[in-house]
Amino acid sequence: MRSLQTQLLYRLSNKRSAPYLFIAPFFLLFLSFWIYPVFYSLYLSFFSATGLGPRTFVALDNYTRLVGDGRFIRSVINTSTYAAASVFILAPLALMVAIALNSSYTRYLKNLYRLIYFIPVITSGVVIGIMFGVVFDYAYGLLNNFIARIGIEPIPWIRSSQWALRSIILLGIWIWLGLNSLYFLAGLQNIPNEFYESAIIDGANAPQRFRFITLPMLRPVTMFVVIQAIIGSYILFDQVWVLTAGGPQDSTLTMTIYLYLIGFRQFRLGYASAIAYSLVFIVLGLTLVVLLVFRKFGDDV
């Protein structure tokens, strides 16, 4: 027994195995806490597994059921709306902020701006949720108090089903604007100044320079930002859970919140796994679409 251990130690002490030994802890944890659950969840999605006790194989029933589940469809629409806002409102805004930060006018305030925009990113989603519960409250909220002073009627930010998703989108913009601006800023600073100089000599005006130099040069960064926004939107959970828990009237029910409700509040693990996998397929599909679009866009240039 002892000799086996000694032999193993001897073998491990040789130089070639050392690197594997160093990375082994990560891969063991990765396999047991990541890869295993991922595949187990796929397996579970073909079963009816409610509560404790035996499971029954139901093949694709969980997936066909999803198609007719109104709440699931609602959650897909809500999440997709949020994702669309991230891509079509947040990303352009972030680009504008980055351009502003990059201009020579803001040179001296750059570090301050960077700090202000970065604070939300390092704050936990739960803290943000609790904070904005106070900000968005109808009768006693900071935001309504503020807009009342400038003569605007109070808005039921998170209380009404018409407004709640918009407020969540607004909150999302507040959180992610800074980080995305930084990505764009890094991209902007990587564009060699010579391009602009020669364009100016050739007589290109500012919009032309933006259209034919800045945008094409930012293509990789933009693609990264868009894909990140899509993934981030589809896994959105904590702020929304704390702020509205998916309500009022399911108006902010995201796919992950629905997954949580089904998995834990309703204890239907098979069905929850099917929701998880539908989420994976949607994100995978959208990412492929984005890659294709950007490739096509790239060919044009």
């Binding site: 409610t50 509560g51 404790l52 006790g53 035996p54 509040r265 309703q266 204890f267 239907r268």
Partner: peptide, 10 residues
């Protein structure tokens, strides 16, 4: 009540 949904209560 969710614990009453499966074959066992737990």
């Amino acid at each position: 009540s969710v614990f009453t949904r499966g074959a066992r209560v737990g």
